[in-house]
Computed example of a mutant assay.
Amino acid sequence: MPRIDIARADPAELIACPQCDALYRAKMPAHGERAVCARCHTVLIAPRKRAGMIIIALSAASLVLVLGAVWFPFLKISRQGFVNEATLLDAALSFTGGPLLVLSLAVTALIVLVPLARAILTIYVLGPLVFDRPAPPGALRLFALAEALRPWSMAEIFALGCAVALVKVADLANLSFGPAFWMFAALVFLTVIHDRWMCRWSVWEALEHGYTARQRKVPA
């Protein structure tokens, strides 16, 4: 993607690299092609065939996995005949007394509420576009909110912390993973795929100009 003279360019036609801030004139590439930053090689625009439908499917799957991970047992600990099962919320809300309550609530929000909100917002915003309907009310603001929440979705950080903690207590008790653990692991995996498939520039273009998937601004 060629660089441009900023002084002569229309701001509405510009796209900035999220890594090095280089400015380019945005142009929708053909399906299967990508617009890449010439300076740091970050992918700027990457439309894919049927990407919208895949993203909605991934968001719906993430929604189910979040709810399942909260409901089913996350971990089972046994020692000398004593057995205890803990859900994901039990682990996140382990400290509920004093100032640690704020920390527990923050952990719960980052690993449960934020992924849940992002999945719901993605389905709400992209669903009508993919099925050739007008953008829903407040779509621009809600998609901006979903993008603002993206750095705060820390399911993978929690998974890494759990792995470290389990290594430390493995010699003290017998540990076994419940269904919620594997659901949570699948959620982390799906979140990575979701973020890689999302072409944010295409979504912004569709929302700002009212395009639908049939008009090829959001790959269906």
Rank of each mutant, 00 (worst) to 15 (best):
S78P: 10
G52I: 06
L140C: 08
A61R: 05
A46P: 00
P29H: 06
A12R: 09
W204V: 07
P18N: 10
L58G: 01
P136W: 05
G138I: 07
L160G: 09
S78C: 12
M53I: 06
L89Q: 14
R196V: 12
A91I: 15
A86D: 10
R8I: 05
A186S: 08
R214F: 13
P73K: 00
L58V: 02
C17D: 05
R8E: 14
P73R: 00
P73T: 00
P18A: 07
G52K: 06
L116I: 00
C20H: 06
G32I: 00
P151L: 02
F82R: 14
L103N: 04
I15H: 09
S153V: 00
P179G: 02
V125H: 06
V102D: 08
A92D: 09
R216T: 14
T122G: 07
V36C: 11
V114N: 04
L103C: 08
R196W: 15
R214W: 08
G97R: 12
G98L: 12
G81A: 02
A109D: 02
G210M: 06
L121P: 12
W71Y: 15
A60H: 02
A148R: 15
M154Q: 13
L172S: 13
A135G: 04
L110N: 09
I77Y: 04
A38E: 11
R214A: 14
F72H: 08
L44S: 04
P134E: 05
A148E: 08
S153N: 14
M1L: 10
R214G: 14
R79I: 07
M154C: 10
